[in-house]
Write a protein that binds this DNA or RNA. Structure first.
Lengths: 205, 205
DNA sequence: TCCTAACCTGATACTCAGTGTCAGTTGCGA
DNA sequence: TCGCAACTGACACTGAGTATCAGGTTAGGA
């Protein structure tokens, strides 16, 4: 996982970052992501534009940096799974760990997801992160299974599908204002692969 | 599908667009996407920067506009499928239509995919298009099946998974320089959902 | 306690993407 | 032939992101 902050410098940096993000987040929700400029943000936060930009490389990162650890959380959780389970179960459980990591403050996460949903630039950047996570996850998933020809494609598809489920489930969950049970939503989503893909699809929940 | 160009204006616009994209594409491949500016492109194409920007809203679109019809191709193909097939078969076949639409000039497509792969901005924008296609595809897939509670999530997951397969298969295909059979690659990818998700995964090709 | 090297900050200047406007031109239909 | 609509280049502008610099602050070792 990411190295815990050791020096006081690191602690300070982390805290400032959090505070800047907090201030910025309010502005984004109030005015809309695209309407807010770095000049606005730095003024609201009481630092110079230069300084603000030193903490966040891009405007998207101001919102999305909270998702950065998800890749590691996911791979770690995948490793912790018993290797004798099938791929889907392992992915489902690892996904639950990732979701649990994200849901600390329900209201906050719902708000962030809402902001992301209505801002194409944020969606795009988030998908980019998702794509960065995939190779490592695929490697971990395959570690137990001696890779045969073509199994790499299969592993890639399964991981990609699992990551898609992450956003679909979170979207559904935030649409219910954080009311629905995330575990059940995950089960319902993974049913897409176990239910006979014909007519019906009786909701299993 | 998109309206065929009728007036001479429309024909002209379409042709100019294609020519500008052609010139620009060479530059991108030569120097790298990020290193080329609109000033470079317009100079190379012999038009003003203003004019170039009028044909393509963003630099990404200069490369990716060829993917714009894919969403419609996919949904149309999905409608054409016999409704009594299962979801996976319908999606697989619709995907094959989309792929066939894209593969007109093998060498050109391989080059484009290579450029996209090594340019994060292009990947991100492409994923954005993909996300735009999804709702309509989900609607078409569900049209035949009376939607029960929770089946919407399942349909969303299946479509999302299918679209992921599109890029995974195209990536694999372009890595083989366009040699591998796309139909077989699609079968291999969809095997991720039919093969028991345990050990082995003997490659079915 | 002091010194120094590393770090943080704000200021400034720069490149480039993307938007908007305007005046002149050209093609097309009436 | 007239007039409208679209196309064009020129120009100005906003804002993201990069780079540099000088002055101030702090951590940590002597």
């Amino acid at each position: 996982m990411s190295a815990a902050p050791v020096g006081t410098r690191e602690i300070s940096r982390h805290a400032v970052r959090a505070e800047l993000a907090r201030v910025a987040f309010n502005r984004f929700c109030l005015t809309g992501f695209n309407q807010v400029t770095f000049a606005d943000l730095s003024e609201a936060a009481g630092v110079s534009r230069s300084t603000f930009l030193r903490y966040f490389g891009t405007k998207e990162d101001v919102v999305l940096f909270v998702f950065d650890p998800v890749g590691d959380v996911f791979t770690d959780a995948l490793d912790a799974e018993r290797a004798n389970q099938d791929d889907w179960s392992r992915l489902r459980n690892a996904l639950e760990s990732a979701v649990r990591f994200l849901v600390r403050d329900v209201q906050e996460l719902v708000t962030i997801l809402g902001l992301i949903e209505q801002t194409p630039a944020l969606c795009a950047r988030l998908r980019e992160k998702q794509t960065e996570w995939r190779p490592e996850i695929v490697a971990r998933l395959q570690k137990t299974t001696p890779s045969t020809d073509g199994s790499s494609v299969i592993a890639n598809v399964r991981v990609a599908a699992a990551l898609e489920i992450l956003w679909i489930v979170l979207g559904q969950w935030s649409a219910s204002d954080g009311q629905e049970d995330l575990g059940k939503l995950l089960d319902a989503a993974f049913a897409a692969f176990s239910t006979p893909a014909r007519q019906q699809t009786d909701a299993p929940l």
